[in-house]
């Protein structure tokens, strides 16, 4: 077979099929994007919810139990978690949704659950709480939160409800997106935006803001 003929065959049977397959898949993706994103999100949540023991730093001190309602909790009852330690449960009752909350927010923690920025505070201390999660797994559902919705954080020492009062997209450098010096217990949830797999950009985040409406003060 001559080289020209071989080149024609390669073009016809390899290059062109790959070319049309790629664009065919791209067109299919664009057409089926909502289904694909949902599927990828569900897959990611399945992966994340499986027992991935990525390293020995991940542990838990959280106990899922009924708590006695109190107005105040002595500080001695609060156990400060280690970095990577599961210490609370974040839930949205009307979405039938819950996630484990870990202290710290490095990459390993964010693969496992919701991470808390260690430069924010634990629930009950009257100071801001900043939580983050991956947009297609842990925090996919926060896009459905509306003003007035209730988000709950349950710890071993208290159950705290937060009412959403604002949400929106903020761009890097996120000026004004958060204020961790506030003397107010504001819950800040954020994740990458938009909520899609191939078009997520690193310079935008989706923020949800909620203020505490119930739960004991830590004294």
């Amino acid at each position: 077979m001559t080289n020209k003929r071989r080149t024609q065959r390669i073009t016809a049977y390899i290059v062109m099929p790959l070319f049309f397959s790629f664009f065919g898949l791209l067109i299919m993706y664009i057409a089926l994007k909502p289904v694909v994103d949902l599927g990828m999100g569900l897959s990611m949540r399945m992966i994340s919810s499986s027992s991935l023991n990525l390293n020995g730093e991940i542990s838990s001190l959280y106990e899922d139990k009924d708590l006695i309602e109190r107005n105040r909790v002595p500080i001695s009852e609060v156990t400060m978690p280690y970095v990577g330690q599961h210490y609370a449960k974040l839930s949205i009752e009307h979405l039938d949704w819950s996630r484990p909350v870990y202290w710290g927010d490095n990459d390993r923690i964010l693969l496992r659950g919701v991470g808390q920025f260690a430069g924010s505070f634990l629930p009950g201390f009257g100071k801001p709480i900043m939580l983050s999660g991956h947009n297609l797994s842990m925090f996919y559902e926060i896009q459905y939160l509306q003003v007035g919705d209730i988000v709950t954080i349950q710890t071993n020492y208290g159950k705290y409800d937060y009412e959403v009062f604002d949400y929106g997209v903020k761009k890097r450098p996120y000026t004004g997106a958060y204020d961790l010096s506030k003397n107010e217990e504001e819950l800040i949830l954020y994740t990458c935006y938009p909520f899609t797999i191939l078009s997520s950009r690193n310079d935008e985040r989706y923020f949800v803001y909620a203020r505490r409406i119930s739960g004991p003060d830590v004294r």
Partner: peptide
């Protein structure tokens, strides 16, 4: 016991907001 009491990134840029988009596994 090897528990991490504190961890921080010592860098020039703010390290408050983390990367929470597509992770490598899914991509």
């Amino acid at each position: 016991s090897g528990n991490i009491l504190a961890e921080t990134v010592v860098g020039d840029d703010s390290t408050v907001i983390k990367e929470t988009g597509n992770d490598l596994l899914m991509t």
